[in-house]
Design a protein around this nucleic acid. Sequence first.
DNA 1: TGAGAGTACGTTAGCGCTAACGAAGTATGC
DNA 2: GCATACTTCGTTAGCGCTAACGTACTCTCA
Lengths: 368, 368
Amino acid sequence: MAVRLKDIARDLGVSLITVSKALRGMGDISEETRQRVLKRMAELNYRPNMLARGLASGKTYIVGLIVPDLLHPFFAEFAKSLNGVLRRHNYGLILASAEEDPKIEQQEIRTVLARGVDALLIASCQPTLHGFYGVEDQRTPFILIDRDFPHLSAHFVGTDDYAAGLIATRHLLSTGKRRIAHIAGPDLAPGADRLRGYKDALAEQGISVRKQYIISNARVEEIGEDVGCQGMRKLLQRKPRPDAVFCYNDLTAIGAIHAALEVGLSIPRDIAFVGCGNVRYSGYLRIPLSSIDQSTGLLGEQAGKLALELINNRATAAKHIRLKPTLVVRASSVVSDLPIQAAVDGKSGVKSQVKTAKKSNPRINAKK
Amino acid sequence: MAVRLKDIARDLGVSLITVSKALRGMGDISEETRQRVLKRMAELNYRPNMLARGLASGKTYIVGLIVPDLLHPFFAEFAKSLNGVLRRHNYGLILASAEEDPKIEQQEIRTVLARGVDALLIASCQPTLHGFYGVEDQRTPFILIDRDFPHLSAHFVGTDDYAAGLIATRHLLSTGKRRIAHIAGPDLAPGADRLRGYKDALAEQGISVRKQYIISNARVEEIGEDVGCQGMRKLLQRKPRPDAVFCYNDLTAIGAIHAALEVGLSIPRDIAFVGCGNVRYSGYLRIPLSSIDQSTGLLGEQAGKLALELINNRATAAKHIRLKPTLVVRASSVVSDLPIQAAVDGKSGVKSQVKTAKKSNPRINAKK
DNA sequence: TGAGAGTACGTTAGCGCTAACGAAGTATGC
DNA sequence: GCATACTTCGTTAGCGCTAACGTACTCTCA
């Protein structure tokens, strides 16, 4: 059996509550007693029973995180970063991967809440908003991640996806491309915002948006390589053929590039690509991929800090944190005169990825 | 406030314990009463308080997982798969990423244990075995993941790393290469086993192991692209130059390939590469990477099942589960006569990856 | 018919901890 | 010298649930 407060109290000849107070650093204990207690605790390798503490105090020091897919680099990095913040504040993390299934998401939310988490972070994969199964009514603070539900006045931490679309498309325009296509994501907040950004960037240059250049994936479950590949095959049949593609994420971009190479196109000369997400291997791909970096680690930190804040100050008006993304340019969108190995090593390779991710200081829009 | 058993009992005019029994499906309740109780529970949206249940019963229905780095695709996939198994059995997952730091690992083990998990899975990053800080003495069953500590007679789930080294090296030998180098991993079980496999495969062909062809990374903290790149630069200075390299993992392979391209070598003609881990993008890299697949998803499942087994039957002799890895051949190790785009599309590209790693991998050429 | 067995439900006593208040002892002020 | 305040420690009463046993009540069968 594990050592309990009671054991230490008996051992030291003081009352249980004195030991508890010493442990928690409460004021009305003499410094001498506290040291005596702490010393004995260390000797006996005492570990407070967090279940009992949680039951008695109503605080579990656990935060729940529900993501659509832990394997997705974005969520993995987010979770890692969040875990770091929480650990530094002695909070634990209960994690659930919903397998892109709203039913499972619902189940996970239920069970995670039953465990009495102090806060809940949800990157939802719900197609339409049916509310969060009672989370809103609960006293447990909850934060939406990555994907906002504007109708719900909830806390939110995510990327400025409109800016992502804008920046990516502007970049392609700046390289002289004019027939820019878009392989869109699901018809949820991030996808819709990136699409808006894409359209507005075109409008800025007086270029009309052509429907035939937009591949919709409104109802696709998993936006991966095959979606990009199939989308690209359709785009290749358009007349005139697009000369650039802004892809919803890096996975679709990889698939799209694959389809373009398949028919012997030269990248970026014939057709250029920009992805979104800047996943780890983007710089090492066959065609190193230009991408929009979401500073995911920073998102995790911000989300963690917000969660802790909400836990400590019960009532706060809904906070929206949107980080500005940054562009990482690589060979998929910019012609390089250098031999290929130099191109990879130099400006467009990993080095610049690190540089950008470190240096870029995304501004935080704290609406309200 | 959440609904409690007491509320339902009062509401229905029965005793609290009757409600509890109905909830848990215990035998000595009439079917009629049970239905009445369950119906009311559903109406009131009752959720059992898992903290209280855990405190009273000693079972939390939570499993803890501690990994060195959640961002590493292996651990992300493992965690995801484990989460799936646990969810199907109504278990939750507390996850901690130790940031490759033994100190943090120790801290995480302490706090996770304090939360009263029913089982603990540890993929340790300890450089040497100092024991698991009292986990062994605890009644909490624990399972070592990926990396075994043979001295400890603990449960283990991981890859047959010796086979991985053997298979990878045999493959390179089968393509006619004879001067095969190895960029090794840290001097822990997986790294040491892969090295042994490498050596034995050479011995099988009567080829003597040359020290100058083995790059040791015994004390390197993070085995990533940089390590591979630097290791390769050293290997390039050896005389005669190696004509193939088996790399500890895919990340080092990516770095190594980078260094080889840098000096204008042709892959795989001048020098061939095999990695290990078969991460998601291996098939999309500049030089699609031959790799050893660890069937990580299956490992997660096996580990989850073992954990549940241990939770239910207290005492079991130490169980060792080692899955045999498989080889996925791509263009980094096999010459292809086809033009590059066809090579990627065809035999050496994505297809073989799909074939081997069925579940989570992109099925890009759906040309069936 | 009444002891034994079975069924359905309830009572009691915690799990290990904390919140809120209470009770000593010591110091301070006028 | 005695009330007031402060310091230090303890008592009481739970948090919401479960384990283990207790108690009615019914049924069975020699």
